[in-house]
């Protein structure tokens, strides 16, 4: 047997358990739903299921509503760089040799541990414009500097946003400028992400930065920033790449839980993301063909992002 054939067989043996499960539970269903996106499959069976070509796609892409929800989805992802930078900063802080690291790490990770329905309900209470502690602090601050008339943002009840996006169509409306439901959800997300999974990934990766490298750089008398820029950052590149790729994938599919628990996609549809839209189409209207088509469009978008990412990221990543 040739060596390459042997390696291939060994590799397949290693791969087999995962590959089998992957094919059955992921790849199979994915192919199935891709096929379904070209049909009028409807659980309510109003008509016999048949292939309808590109109809679903044309209908989705020419629909103003789809683009509104698309914009919502992208909006939620705008804070991703802040979240990533934050988690890197926290990881760097936690990578120093100081006392109480265990305690800090655990405390900072708590938001990720407690994430879930209960926390979202809690945030809902925190954001209450009249009774919530957040506005209590904001209004208290303005009172203190003598601006009694300032009232806090309406948070989850408001359609306003920092990009002044209109509500009914994709447009800019000055009156919509302000803090609203979208910012509320973003702030909650950023709060949870500083000490979250990304921080852990960075921390683990920082541990893999060879000490010889940092020591050598320190001997050269490199400053902290230089050390970070020239030694640490390149070493972290694969991790950063991974985090960005996963962030885009997660972000494009995100916003579902928040919409379900906190806002039901409102007010006026401003927190309805594509994932929530898919859920509604599939599980409240049973239009599975249509929902699959939205997913496929979403998939193509994510894929495009990722390919760009890959091309760009690969420059810094050494395999």
């Amino acid at each position: 047997m040739k060596k390459s054939t042997k390696t291939t067989l060994i590799a397949l043996a290693f791969l087999l358990p995962n590959l089998l499960g992957f094919m059955v539970f992921t790849f199979g269903p994915v192919v199935f739903s891709m096929g379904a996106s070209f049909t009028n499959w409807d659980l309510q069976g109003r008509e016999p299921t048949r292939f309808i070509g590109l109809d679903n796609f044309v209908n989705i892409l020419t629909d103003n509503q789809f683009w509104l929800f698309f914009v919502n989805t992208i909006f939620f992802m705008l804070a991703m760089p802040i979240a990533i930078a934050g988690s890197l900063a926290v990881a760097l802080l936690l990578n120093s040799k100081i006392r109480g690291l265990d305690a800090y790490r655990t405390l900072l990770y708590l938001p990720s541990v407690t994430a879930g329905v209960a926390t979202m309900l809690l945030w809902k209470a925190l954001y209450n414009p009249d009774f919530g502690p957040i506005n209590f602090i904001i209004e208290g601050f303005f009172d203190w500097i003598g601006m009694d008339s300032v009232t806090g943002p309406k948070w989850l009840l408001s359609t306003q946003n920092l990009l002044a996006l209109g509500v009914e169509q994709v447009s800019i409306v000055a009156a919509q400028f302000g803090l609203g439901a979208r910012e509320a959800i973003i702030i909650m997300g950023v709060w949870g992400s500083f000490g979250g999974g990304n921080m852990i990934l960075y921390l683990a990766a920082l541990g893999n930065v060879p000490q010889e490298l940092t020591e050598a750089a320190e001997l050269d008398g490199a400053g902290r920033w230089k050390l970070f820029r020239n030694v640490t950052w390149p070493q972290l590149a694969p991790t950063t790449f991974f985090i960005v790729v996963m962030g885009v994938i997660g972000g494009m599919q995100g916003g579902f839980e928040q919409a379900r628990v906190m806002t039901q996609g409102g007010p006026a549809g401003t927190t309805t993301t594509l994932a929530y839209y898919i859920y509604n189409k599939a599980f409240t209207e049973y239009q599975l063909g249509f929902a699959s088509a939205i997913s496929l469009i979403l998939f193509v978008m994510i894929l495009t992002f990722t390919i760009i990412n890959w091309k760009f990221g690969n420059k810094e990543v050494n395999y």
Binding site: F32, S33, A282, L296, I302, L303
Partner: peptide, 21 residues
């Protein structure tokens, strides 16, 4: 790459075929 690509498909929609399975 095949593995990677499947991650980009929203899991929600594979839920129904998976349920059928």
């Amino acid at each position: 790459q095949l593995y990677l690509t499947t991650m980009m498909i929203p899991g929600l929609v594979t839920m129904v075929p998976n349920f059928g399975l």
